[in-house]
Design a protein around this nucleic acid. Structure first.
Lengths: 100, 100
DNA sequence: ATCATATGTAACTAATAGGTTTCATAAAGG
DNA sequence: CCTTTATGAAACCTATTAGTTACATATGAT
């Protein structure tokens, strides 16, 4: 599962899609496809990969589908990594601590 | 550059290499290769990809090379993403704030 | 009912990634 | 000097990924 997330994030178009859906919640696949030069089908495949990684949640609405961003998988990855590499992340946390 | 990092993190072996180097600073490419069933050359290619993404720093020492993990690129990615998705990350930050 | 619109599926092609074998280089030790 | 050990590079094969075109389905509007 963590592998699906890293895999999904590996393609720049897919990260762009995430960004767009994040700032345009409920958008359709057509709107997403319009962002790119490549074909609608190519974009649809990217969307499917993001959906499998649970980075996008999709809800059917009539003949379109509404797309929503889901931070959860990224949060999971982040938590696991910061736990493992806490020694590195402790520095910024401390400065934040001081700020608080 | 951010693309190279995501790309580098996409392969499970490369993430394993990062983990190993992180807990075995200064290790050689031979030691890293010994972790995997696949050939030394295949692993060397993974190491090169990690080096290009600056996730590994390499120092020559006699006839071996010492490998070190570099959190910086991940930190950069993390900073950019948390900035962009701050609304999601604010929740845990707030709970941390309360804790502090 | 008909037609346009939104999306999905299948089959195929091209590009990239991951791996192998083989040969080369270069440092350390007897 | 010669051998062993550590690593690098080139050529090649295979698997996977990314993209295309063509066809299918289903909803909404006229």
């Amino acid at each position: 599962m963590i592998d699906e997330v890293f895999q999904a994030l590996a393609h720049p178009h897919r990260r762009q899609i995430i960004d767009f859906v994040h700032q345009t919640p409920g958008c359709s696949s057509g709107e997403i496809a319009a962002l790119f030069e490549s074909s609608r089908i190519a974009v649809a495949k990217h969307i499917k990969i993001l959906e499998k990684a649970q980075l996008l949640l999709i809800e059917k609405s009539g003949r379109t589908k509404q797309h929503y961003f889901n931070i959860m998988p990224i949060q999971t990855v982040y938590d696991r990594w910061t736990d493992q590499y806490s020694q590195f992340f402790s520095a910024p946390l401390n400065s934040f601590k001081n700020y608080v």
